[in-house]
């Protein structure tokens, strides 16, 4: 059973449709990335999923509990990490966590545990306003984890974060997913989405324009992997041998190098290297380029993710 099921979500602000008929599901332990340019409707979608914003139409169901009829019960299953730092700066890190823990009915042991998880135990009794930007981000994430949610919603949790804190947040998310928590994640960092997300949904102008695993999206768009080779020896033999391979769709020679277009580089690379060796060439370097989500995103929306 899906942990989160969204169907036909709609929300307008005045005459402007911010989200228009968005549907998706997230399974237990799955990390789902919601990608889109600024103003595409990501935050509005997330706000409806968390119950912060009411829907004009559609339904949000968390573990079988509908937000429309049992909002309080559904919210107990959802952890929310908003895009903005949502902290009380004049309270300590521990006080921030204890306050939100009390709202969700979580105990003090859970607060201590979460402080350990996000690496803030040593600074727990300092005022939040004295934290570095990265520490504030980690505290922001920690609040969302307090009540052991079944669905964790993270709205750009690593925006403006130093690499160390970013890695810690990503590792936390991975660990949660491994424990079976369903994750809904938005980010501007494509490499982050590729590292973390099992599936992504691409949203543009309020509509979900594509959805699936990275490779599915790439294949759906006809994008292919590329292998760049630098060789010693006569390139004609290698070109001929590679051109005869079923998995190689195109070969182009330039200087001492060859450029191959293949279906799945990771699958056919051993065969390619064997063919080159058999042709009497020596491989000096290999570079594999897979079409990334940025390519897919650009193809689907006509915009870069950071626009």
């Amino acid at each position: 059973m899906a942990v989160l099921s969204c169907s036909g979500l709609k929300r307008r602000f005045g005459d402007v449709p911010a989200v228009d008929d968005v549907s998706f599901t997230i399974a237990e332990g799955e990390t789902y990335g919601l990608l889109g340019p600024n103003g595409a409707g990501k935050t509005t979608t997330i706000s409806m999923v968390t119950g912060v914003l009411e829907r004009d139409a559609g339904e949000v169901v968390v573990e079988g509990i509908a937000m429309s009829t049992r909002a309080t019960a559904a919210k107990r299953l959802v952890g929310y990490v908003p895009q903005e730092l949502a902290l009380y700066p004049d309270l300590t890190g521990r006080e921030n966590l204890r306050f939100f823990a009390s709202l969700y009915g979580a105990g003090r042991k859970r607060v201590d545990h979460v402080l350990d998880v996000v690496g803030l135990a040593e600074r727990a009794d300092d005022l939040a306003r004295e934290y570095s930007g990265g520490m504030k981000r980690r505290l922001n994430v920690a609040i969302g984890l307090l009540h052991e949610p079944r669905l964790l919603v993270l709205d750009e949790p690593t925006a403006g974060v130093d690499p160390q804190s970013r890695n810690q947040i990503i590792e936390n998310v991975r660990a949660l997913a491994a424990q079976g928590v369903a994750i809904l994640y938005t980010t501007h960092y494509m490499e982050e989405a590729e590292r973390l997300c099992d599936r992504v949904g691409i949203i543009d102008s309020g509509r979900l324009v594509a959805e699936g695993a990275r490779r599915e999206l790439v294949e759906r768009l006809g994008e292919r992997d590329r292998i760049s080779l630098r060789l010693d020896g006569d390139l004609a033999h290698a070109t001929s041998a590679l051109g005869a391979m079923r998995d190689v769709q195109a070969v182009a020679a330039h200087g001492t190098g060859l450029e191959l277009v293949v279906g799945d580089a990771s699958e056919c690379l051993p065969a390619v290297l064997s063919a080159i060796s058999a042709a009497g060439n020596v491989v000096r370097s290999v570079e594999v380029t897979e079409p990334d989500l940025e390519t897919v995103f650009l193809h689907l929306t006509g915009k870069a993710l950071r626009e």
Partner: peptide, 11 residues
């Protein structure tokens, strides 16, 4: 300060 969204998301 953004904390209202957090309160609204809480039960």
């Amino acid at each position: 300060d953004g904390t209202l969204a957090r309160l609204l998301a809480a039960p």
